[in-house]
Nucleic acid binder design. Structure first.
Lengths: 342, 342
DNA sequence: CTGAAAGCGCTTACAG
DNA sequence: CTGAAAGCGCTTACAG
């Protein structure tokens, strides 16, 4: 049994599709359609189990009520939680989310953007990989609203909502310093990524402000597709040295790194915080039940997701009107647990 | 600057849309279109930066190349990882995924199914909440292919792909028994959910097979929306008793429960596995860095996701032909770590 | 080999 | 108050 369409209802009632459309879209009073006919349309619609074809609506009206979300990896709890917040906010306004995991790969994200454009999404929320500047620039020239999250490109003028990464890393590093740690390391990802760079910059600045020279050997940069062995190598280089060359604390720039690193540290038989203090970005669940619960920099995921959707929906509502680009920087929350000692 | 359409190309070249459509869809040789014209169409398409409107294609052809995914919560790493596998497999065939988190709420899932139907998805992958039997039954009567994952309704004949929950729980419980544990508890979710029921059933059977009477006081059933306090209450009831009434081991039926429970156990100052042995469903990252790395029942997420998509795509490819419903049960992997002692 | 035409299911000026 | 008609951008019989 095929789905009922507008004309099925119209035919049945001997009225025009126009009428049916008006009634079903709540424009009955606007067009002063008689209560009688109005009621009959509704009745038949219910009887036929009518439900509008959004694809047809989309073709006609030009908006599909779906938005495209491109993040690094939906399996990463950080992005999963962010996705959830975005979904929730979107649902409140009847929008659907198509998600795409880019794996921080600009070729993939380019292809995903193209695909989503073909699908006529009404807007994008993107966590752009490195080397995707051109894609974003092209997007900025186009008509489809979008907002960047988690990172952005300082040189591109467009909506974005990020977190004060510099400040967060600075705070975390100072915390470590205040507890007497001096050989503080940082394990991070490709520094071409603005957020990662800011984190490492904040870390370095805190050291300098404490008159400690930055030792580049203590900054380990991992590839995006890092696996346990990459992390293990970094940990070995950091901790497998003589006492006065060894790191006595580590700042992890992502929780994915942190989890792998802690697993590695434990397997080496080292104790946190006694042998090594540890602090990490992202308040992931794993850190709560860790050998030594991890002191973290928590990000306001709810606020990021909600704000991103709000900005997007606002632009979708008012196409053409060039509102000021929204550049939002949110504060993080520093949560002290036991992994830094006391 | 508006997006170029088929007719823009046709107009420019003074040919018909038909022709352009044929060329761009790789049917040039099938319709023996001259190489010359073929080339010119391609050139103009590139020049105009043409890209097909999938929404229009969808309206015309009846398939949108998008599939709807309904799971409990994309922020839950279990579903996040599953979503990732599904996305990956879907992408290989040019399909997009719209995801919806139902929160195990049947009203929400009903609404999401309706929404996705209106969006003309080509198929569904659903992890159905309790009390959604009617929705699934209705779906089964309809034309849109779908496959259930993680749980299913034994009385409804439809595609599903699940894991041998009974066997997994049985194995885990036997493991605990073999290590001398006798007062083994189980913390689970609403047992109306088939997978949860199977887990608890497997647990009970293992006890019976070891001639141990099942003590219903040791089975704690939490609401779906459980929070720390709910888990804390269960833990207190299990461990806050006199020695011979106290549980000496717990099987967690989900990792979400497990993580909360372990956090709670730690905060009580109890040691795993000395004070209490612990084993859990789902090999989540958190368990690897846990106070005492947790022995788990790992699910074959990759295979679940991949198989589900395969079944779905196959049905989409062959509409109408009523293939046999696919009912797949996969094996789990029992991974022994330190949380049960030795 | 190529084109005119219909139609997917809707919305929305326009006309009366 | 109501309807005929156009059109969103495509695909696909059908005809020549």
């Amino acid at each position: 049994m095929k789905k009922a369409s507008l004309s099925d209802i119209a035919l049945r009632l001997g009225v025009s599709k126009t009428l049916v459309s008006f009634v079903l879209n709540g424009k009955a009073k606007e067009y002063r359609i008689s209560d009688d006919i109005c009621q009959r349309v509704m009745d038949v619609a219910k009887e036929l189990n009518y439900t509008p074809n959004r694809i047809a609506q989309g073709l006609r009206t030009g908006h599909t009520k779906t938005i495209g979300l491109i993040i690094a990896d939906i399996a990463n709890p950080f992005f999963g939680k962010l996705g959830r917040e975005i979904e929730q906010e979107a649902a409140r306004y009847g929008y659907n989310i198509i998600f795409c995991s880019s794996d921080e790969n600009p070729e993939k994200s380019a292809q995903q953007i193209a695909m989503l454009q073909q699908s006529q999404v009404d807007g994008f929320i993107i966590s752009p990989p490195i080397n995707s500047e051109d894609q974003i620039r092209t997007l900025a020239k186009g008509q489809i609203p979008f907002v960047l999250i988690d990172r952005f490109f300082p040189e591109i003028d467009c909506n974005h909502i990020v977190v004060d990464n510099f400040d967060a890393a600075y705070t975390a590093t100072k915390h470590l310093l205040s507890l007497g740690r001096r050989r503080i390391a940082n394990i991070t990802l490709n520094l071409d990524l603005a957020n990662m760079k800011d984190r490492t910059d904040g870390y370095k600045q805190a050291l300098r402000d404490a008159s400690i020279e930055v030792d580049e050997n203590l900054v380990k940069v991992l590839p995006f597709s890092h696996e346990n062995k990459d992390v293990a190598l970094a940990i070995n280089e950091l901790l497998g040295k003589k006492d006065d060359l060894k790191a006595d604390a580590i700042l992890f720039s992502t929780s994915k790194i942190g989890i792998m690193a802690i697993e590695c540290i434990s397997s080496l038989g080292l104790k946190i915080p006694d042998d090594i203090a540890v602090v990490s970005f992202d308040n992931t669940d794993a850190y709560k039940i860790c050998v030594s619960p991890v002191t973290v920099i928590g990000q306001p995921l709810k606020e990021i997701g909600k704000t991103a959707m709000q900005i997007l929906l606002n632009e979708i509502k008012h196409p053409g009107v060039k509102v000021k680009t929204q550049k939002v920087t949110l504060k993080t929350e520093f949560i002290v647990r036991k992994s830094c000692g006391s």
